[in-house]
Amino acid sequence: MIAAIVVLSVMAGVSGLLLGFAAVRFKVEGDPIVDKIDAILPQTQCGQCGYPGCRPYAEAIAAGEADINQCPPGGENGVTALADLLGRDPKPLNAEHGAVKPKMVAVIDEQNCIGCTLCIQACPVDAILGAAKHMHTVIASECTGCELCIAPCPVDCIDMIPVAQTITTWKWTYPAVTAKAAA
C-alpha cells in the first residue's frame, strides 16, 4: 500500500519535472499557425479583408474570428490553400470584400503631383518615394497594388494600371481543348 503510494508519487513527480522542463525547453513562441496562414496570404496589405494588413487577418483566421474567403488578391487559389492548411472546405470568395482583379500597379501622374506626402504615409510597403513639396513617384517593383494611396491623394493624380505582360512574365495558357468539349 505505502510502497504503491510512494512509487506513484515518485512517478508523478518525475513526470511533472519532465513536463515542466519540456514546457520551458520547447516553448513555442507565438502561434505557428498564424505564420503558416500569413505565408499563404499575398502580403498586399490592402485591408480589403477588413483587417489592417495581412498578419492581423492571419491572426483573426487563426482565432476563428474571420473566414478564409475574405482576401480577393489571394484569389481562389489562396482560399484553396488556406482550406488545405486548416482542413476546411474551400468556398467561393466573399463578394463583400471585393472581386478578384488583374495585378495592378500604382502610377503617379507627375505633372499633377503637388508633393503633399499623403500617399507616402498611406503606402503600407513604403513603395512611394518623394519629399514634401517635391514630386513623388512609385517604385513599381515594390508596389503591391493595394490602392491605399488612391483615396488620400487630394488631387487625384494616382492611377492604377494593370501590370503589362512582358516576355519574362508571359505564361503558356491552359490548353484550350478539353476532353469534355470534344466529347
Partner: peptide, 17 residues
C-alpha cells in the same frame, strides 16, 4: 509633416527628388 518616411525605411533625411 514630421520625419518623412523614406522608401528604404530608417531615419535618413528625406532626399528631395
Amino acid at each position: 509633416t514630421p520625419a518623412l518616411p523614406v522608401a528604404e525605411g530608417g531615419n535618413q533625411e528625406p532626399e528631395p527628388l
